[in-house]
Design a protein around this nucleic acid. Structure first.
Lengths: 115, 115
DNA sequence: GTTATCTATTACCTATAGGTAACTAGTTTC
DNA sequence: GAAACTAGTTACCTATAGGTAATAGATAAC
């Protein structure tokens, strides 16, 4: 049974879960957070690492993650100009959830694949 | 740092995480699974419990969860006919992930709310 | 002076998610 | 025979997600 959910006044908890989903869902949020998990990276580095993402989506998703205080954006006075993105403590606090997502995803694949 | 992700051959793990997201994401999957967490329920019971869901969405999401082997659908020979939905072991195996989603969601709300 | 690299932005398109409202078909109660 | 309950289905609409391709302005390299 689910220990923390469903002890009455469920509405508030459903809201929390919905918020969490909103932050990590979509095609690119997860890959971006993982890419930043080993330290700050520039726009172009992220673009090269997340091979299939378009500059539009990368820019858009980075803005969204910044709005949600998951990452910070630093403009550096280099020539040419470079921009560094880095996970905040809030961003890194999602690792446990992301690991759980991965682990259950593997379990799910196994179960689904063998009929 | 994220222990299980990013030990190279990341593609496969990104796929697993993406699969997991696909199963639990959307507005109604999470509430439906939670509603079924304390035992089997009929269509009408779910509809009444998840107050804002429309019959179309409930029907559609139940089908999707059944396809993903998260729940079973049993037609009962009662008059009038009733249908029972119940979590499978795969369905209940998602509780740990859902709890983590809730817990991080609460943490996220706290962090976001105080500026 | 043309090309490449930096970090994006803009216009345009399609597919999907999700919502509303009405309807179906059978059974049971008033 | 009208209304309500059973479990859905159907048509239609809007908003969002996400994709492609072209463009922008600054600087640096050739």
């Amino acid at each position: 049974m689910s220990g923390k959910i469903k002890e009455k006044t469920c509405q508030f908890k459903l809201m929390a879960a919905r918020d969490a989903l909103e932050v990590i869902q979509g095609r690119w949020r997860f890959p971006i957070i993982i890419a930043l998990s080993d330290g700050k990276k520039r726009f172009g580095e992220l673009k090269r690492e997340i091979t299939e993402i378009s500059p539009k989506m990368l820019s858009q998703e980075l803005k969204s993650l910044e709005t949600n205080k998951m990452i910070t954006r630093s403009l550096l006075n280099t020539m040419p100009i470079t921009v560094e993105y880095e996970l905040t403590p809030l961003g890194t606090s999602s690792f446990k959830l992301l690991d759980e997502l991965l682990e259950w995803g593997l379990h799910f694949r196994e179960e689904i694949m063998r009929q």
